[in-house]
Amino acid sequence: MTGFALGADQEEWCGHLRALAAGRLRTLAREGEPGRVNRPLLAALGEEGLLDRVFTSGALDLCLLRESLAYGCTEAETALALQGLGAYPVLRAGSAAQRERWLPEVRAGRAVAAFALSEPGAGSDAAALTLAAVPDDRAGAGGAGGTAGGTGAGTGGGAGRGGWRLSGEKCWISNAPEADFYTVFARTGEGPGAKGVTAFLVPAARPGLSGEPLDMLSPHPIGTLSFDGVPVGPQDLLGEPGRGFRVAMDTLNLFRPSVGAFAVGMARAALDATLAYTAGRTAFGATLSDLQAVGHRVAEMATRTEAARLLVYAAAAAHDSGAPDLPRRAAMAKLLATETAQYVVDHAVQLHGAVALRRGHLLEHLYREVRAPRIYEGASEVQRTIIARELYAQVAAR
């Protein structure tokens, strides 16, 4: 890629993904039940090798993958992204036994992963987590277990080693309560705020773990989790005690730009639908495209979409090059792309009129999908806080 213009191979790959999403994957998505994990869709993503790409590609390729899938099938894009979000901490911070046990199943689409960070009182302020990990020597001996899906044995416990009991709640957790395992962030208390958070890999079959689905605006599965003295041991740690917040932030720094790519994919789909509709729709004795008000609005939609796309690619390139200003760039990319997608989809609906409000219309679907990305993985207000903090840190450093 030169100057953020895609090469021929990248363009060809993106075209293949858009066709796959609009064909096989969209068919499987339509056969699924809204608000439930679509396991046949996940299996297809595994068969196509796309889940494996989440763990073997750089940030730029991940963005191209998410943008292209979102253009043709938002359900496929979300299913893929949630697998990555839930399992990426295992790739980066998990033990050899954890990676060997879970990652092949995730890549094949046989095991469902989930990222359990948010709580009823700790959404945007992730450092304010209250899920308690209370030391309990007995938990270390019986910590690990297999999945509800029966895809294999757990990592195994070690008698005599100290463990913890998890008590509290998680909320707004994608893929809950149907996931086979959860990356869980709990307070072990090594220090105040973020310094006292530890990451654990918790199989869904662990005693004391339960959950309930939530009926949400967007169609992907999301729910609550309840931890009633759930046992975890040293073999369940993802990284070191007290270092879990870094595990979470490393994951979010990768996935925030690609959330922007998801948003760009939706914006491009809405824009293309609007161009086709306004070029053929007659009103007031002319096509809509001949009306200056319509042309100017479409021009604004296209310009904002292109600006968001370039910022997302720039943030992804910063991640792949190890740039020190990645947090700022990732926050900017997510902020602009998600806010832009909301603008573009909203104006696309307006230009289509009542037809876009009919259940099953592409824009009706996108209108429900586009709102959530401005909130999850750090709301727009959080992204602005990150950007401002990073900018003033540069001033202080100078």
Results as ranks from 00 to 15, higher is better:
R328E: 15
A186Q: 11
R329S: 11
R329Y: 08
D346P: 00
A43K: 12
A341Q: 07
A299G: 13
Y376D: 03
E169M: 09
E381H: 03
V294M: 08
Y71P: 01
I375K: 02
G154Q: 02
D272N: 09
S167N: 12
V106N: 13
S380Q: 13
E369D: 14
A315P: 05
V382A: 06
Q394D: 11
T198A: 01
G378Y: 02
G145I: 04
F284E: 14
A159M: 08
E105M: 11
G32L: 03
P177Y: 06
R309F: 05
I386S: 13
A248K: 10
R256E: 14
E119C: 07
G233Y: 06
V37G: 07
T278C: 15
L42D: 09
G360V: 06
P34W: 06
R18V: 05
H319K: 12
D236Y: 01
V232G: 03
F200E: 05
R368C: 00
L45R: 04
A144R: 04
Q350L: 09
A113D: 06
S218P: 00
T56D: 15
A279T: 12
G157Q: 07
A97F: 00
A397I: 08
D215T: 06
W172P: 01
C63N: 14
A113F: 03
I387K: 12
A388R: 15
A186N: 12
G196L: 09
L351W: 03
E33D: 12
V349E: 07
D250N: 13
Y367W: 05
A316R: 13
A70V: 03
L91W: 09
V294L: 07
A199V: 06
G109M: 13
A397E: 15
T385K: 09
W172F: 11
L311P: 01
P207G: 07
Q292T: 13
A261C: 01
G360R: 14
A356E: 02
T303Q: 14
S321Y: 09
A267W: 04
E77A: 07
R304V: 01
V344T: 01
R107H: 08
L237K: 09
C14D: 00
A114C: 05
Q10I: 00
E178P: 02
A372Q: 06
E31D: 15
A388Y: 12
L117N: 08
F55D: 15
A331T: 03
A396R: 15
E169Q: 14
G140E: 03
A93W: 08
S380C: 11
G152D: 04
A308R: 04
A331N: 10
Q235F: 02
R53W: 09
G160M: 09
A341I: 00
E364Y: 13
R243G: 05
V90D: 01
G360A: 07
E105D: 07
L91E: 15
V230Y: 04
P241F: 00
G265S: 03
V197K: 09
G154E: 03
R138L: 08
G189M: 10
L214G: 00
